[in-house]
């Protein structure tokens, strides 16, 4: 249990750094650390499948962030650090986030105390695979179709067209 809260602390620090750091490369590195620590939380509570998927997704997203940041010139030494927009929208989003946390805090007070503890081993890969293929098979198919269409659509949207070059 305590190691879960250790990883939760690492996740929170990394997320704060990813949100407030100005340098893009440091923000991307913090996002990667946050993803890895979140996968570690999942692993400590017995969700191996989600932990592995979280690690894979975080690493691939980080690699692609680095690739696109290089392509867009944000890693250029001459590029100035971006100035942050600190306006009423930021304070509004902070207030919304705090209100969101408050609603969650009020909501979880209604749960029985013993159900908020973690239980290990009840969601092993075998039972999750069975439920995925027996009860959520249509959802799995739809998700696969969405990912396929996104792959094709992303290629179509980002294709190079000579006419757009000035």
């Amino acid at each position: 249990m305590s190691i879960s809260y250790l990883f939760a602390g690492i996740t929170l620090i990394a997320v704060i750094l990813a949100t407030f750091l100005n340098q893009t490369r440091q923000a991307i590195l913090s996002l990667w650390i946050a993803g890895l620590a979140m996968g570690a939380i999942y692993l400590t509570i017995g969700v191996e499948l989600l932990a592995i998927i979280q690690w894979i997704v975080s690493t691939l997203v980080t690699v692609s962030f680095v690739f696109f940041a290089v392509m867009f010139g944000e890693f250029n030494p001459s590029a100035l650090p971006q100035k942050r927009k600190i306006n009423w929208l930021m304070f509004l989003s902070l207030c919304l986030g705090l209100a969101f946390i408050g609603v969650i805090w009020l909501g979880i007070r209604g749960f029985p105390a013993q159900s908020q503890s973690f239980s290990l081993g009840l969601s092993d890969l075998t039972s999750m695979g069975k439920i995925l293929t027996q009860e959520y098979f249509l959802s799995l198919e739809i998700l696969g179709l969405i990912l396929f269409f996104v792959l094709v659509g992303g290629g179509v949207i980002s294709r190079f067209e000579g006419d757009e070059q000035e």
């Binding site: 997320v15 949100t19 696109f68 944000e74 927009k85 989003s93 919304l96 986030g97």
Partner: peptide
């Protein structure tokens, strides 16, 4: 809190990345 910080990050950053 993570979701709220993500919202703040979306609002405050100036680039698409």
């Amino acid at each position: 809190l993570i979701g709220a910080l993500g919202l703040v990050c979306m609002v405050s950053r100036k680039t698409l990345l």
